[in-house]
């Protein structure tokens, strides 16, 4: 996988030092993260799916960026997305989940 990403110019791999994203890699990663944010927010806001994190991961391979763009027309996503993504919680930090809504 790393070799493929390297061939595509998305990462640079240096032996014993690890892997770094290239500029193109950062752009692609940001796009992928944005799609993921759209799917999560769509599942929660429109379909009211409780397990939206789990289902977003399952749907990620079927919902590409063209489809995500359309879904994006009916959700309420903030302009700073996907920088607001909280990797630890696997969710947009600005997404009001049922748990945070109860806080």
């Amino acid at each position: 996988m790393i070799g493929k990403l390297e061939t595509d110019g998305l990462v640079e791999h240096e032996k014993y030092k690890g892997v770094t994203l290239t500029e193109d890699g950062i752009v692609r990663a940001s796009e992928a993260l944005q799609n993921y944010c759209i799917i999560e927010r769509f599942l929660l806001e429109v379909l009211e799916v409780e397990e939206f994190r789990t289902e977003a991961r399952q749907l990620e391979s079927v919902i590409d960026e063209t489809v995500a763009e359309r879904l994006d027309t009916i959700i309420d996503r903030q302009p700073q997305c996907p920088d607001c993504f909280d990797a630890e919680d696997d969710v947009c930090a600005l997404l009001e989940t049922p748990a945070t809504a109860d806080d």
Binding site: L47, V49, L59, S61, V62, D64, V67, R70
Partner: peptide, 30 residues
């Protein structure tokens, strides 16, 4: 898979009635 040259197909099979129903719901929304 993502419309880019050289991209690898990552098709994940539909694994259950639940997943199929979810995809049909998304189709309906579109």
């Amino acid at each position: 898979r993502d419309g880019r040259e050289g991209a690898v197909s990552l098709t994940v099979p539909v694994g259950s009635d639940h997943q199929l129903a979810r995809l049909l719901q998304i189709g309906i929304v579109l």
